[in-house]
Amino acid sequence: MIRTVITSVLIILLGWSAASWLTYDFQIWTDEDARRLEVALHPVEISPVQIEGPDLAETDLPTLLRQENVVTIADFIYTRCQAVCPSLGSIFQQIQTALLNDAGNERPRNVRLLSISFDRKHDDPPALRAYADNLSARPELWRFVRVLQAKQEQALLQQLGVVVIPDGRGDYEHNAALLVFDGAGRMVRVFDIEEHQLALDYARHLARKQIQETSL
């Protein structure tokens, strides 16, 4: 009997530690939450990815993000999207309005928006421009880009933990979220689309902090 007791205790301990390892001490249950937690703990550097977009010469993503003191809120979209992207679009519109108002107040002016398309084949610069105009995006605040090479696109999605799956009705489903990048071009936080106010406040806070740090 003692053998069985020992084995049973060991099994329970093993199962407990496996579960606690998987869930970061029972804080999270899904991979999406794990990704958000991991990003908050360890900012993610991204490798150079060639991008282009309306009013934007071919450049690479880290360079675009690494403009001095600029904090970027990014999302992933595709212009033919009927499901989640329109709501992402309207959230970005709201953030853009808030940013335009910031210019009048004493809030930091170095927060930018970036929509990255993962439908490389269809979303060429003219398509992106039409989409941007439709959302009345201001180019100085809100840019639209696509990745040029399929391989780099895959690598980028993987680095940022974005999973895109076809939904069987001709659309794509993806873990839509707001990704916040700091002035060094690192992804520092991931927010749910419901938490867009939080994402904006965090971006403003980070932007202010970056300005203070450089002025010191």
């Binding site: 099994i11 199962g15 496996a18 579960a19 998987l22 999270i28 899904t30 991979d31």
Partner: peptide, 14 residues
């Protein structure tokens, strides 16, 4: 224990 752990949604994605 195995089934309980494997029912955590994160396991499927991972």
């Amino acid at each position: 224990v195995t089934l309980a752990v494997l029912m955590i949604p994160r396991v499927l994605d991972q």
